[in-house]
């Protein structure tokens, strides 16, 4: 989808109300996505604001679509990719090693989702390779379905699920090791 906008006229009051409500509704997800995937906390507000500026230039497309958040996340992602260089490719070695060490730190009832576990899990997510982290964050923070994630990232659904599977394996390994120490 095209996200490049310019030379828009002033907003009508109905458009302005819609835009204001959208900022209020979608900002938390955009902040979470940019901060958790790209880790640039000092530029998050600027990127989120710029996302809405570009969306404001094409409100008709935004209002006509059924998932404005998906549209906004697409804009935000393009902005981030323009600004920040992509990180190195995935290290698959850790995933391969995982297969030799089964771990179930999250089986129901064995580990409560307490504050400490949440913090360790956030750190573990932050340590994931970017292409895995992005899937996890889009699902959990962006509240996107996997079909939508696949569309946003221009990858097949099976690839999105496969990356999620790999990410979950890495997280289980990390959390299992942390739990033992």
């Amino acid at each position: 989808m095209s996200v490049r906008t310019r030379d828009r006229g002033p907003l009508g009051s109905g458009e302005r109300d819609y835009l204001d409500a959208l900022v209020r509704d979608a900002s938390p997800r955009l902040f979470a996505y940019v901060r958790r995937v790209f880790g640039k906390s000092d530029e998050v507000e600027d990127i989120v604001a710029e996302t809405f500026c570009r969306a404001a230039g094409n409100l008709a497309a935004l209002r006509g679509g059924d998932r404005p958040v998906l549209y906004l996340l697409t804009i935000a992602r393009n902005l981030c990719r323009d600004r920040f260089r992509r990180q190195k490719p995935v290290d698959n070695a850790a995933t391969d090693r995982l297969a030799e060490h089964p771990a179930r730190p999250f089986a129901s009832g064995t580990v409560p989702a307490d504050d400490e576990q949440i913090e360790r899990l956030q750190a573990a997510v932050a340590a994931l390779p970017e292409n895995l982290r992005e899937i996890v964050v889009l699902r959990m923070s962006g509240d996107l379905k996997f079909e939508e994630i696949a569309e946003l990232l221009h990858i097949p659904l099976g690839t999105a699920l496969s990356r999620m599977h790999t990410a979950m394996g890495k997280l289980r390994q990390t959390m299992s090791v942390a739990h033992e120490h």
Binding site: V23, S27, P28, F31, P105, F106, Q122, L171
Partner: peptide, 27 residues
């Protein structure tokens, strides 16, 4: 269990009101 814990860990935090206002004005 992992997915539930991830959802709890990665739920977006609220954005401060002054930030919302700044973004709205800029938009």
């Amino acid at each position: 269990g992992l997915l539930g814990a991830l959802e709890a860990a990665l739920t977006p935090e609220p954005v401060a009101e002054d930030v919302i206002t700044r973004i709205q004005q800029r938009a």
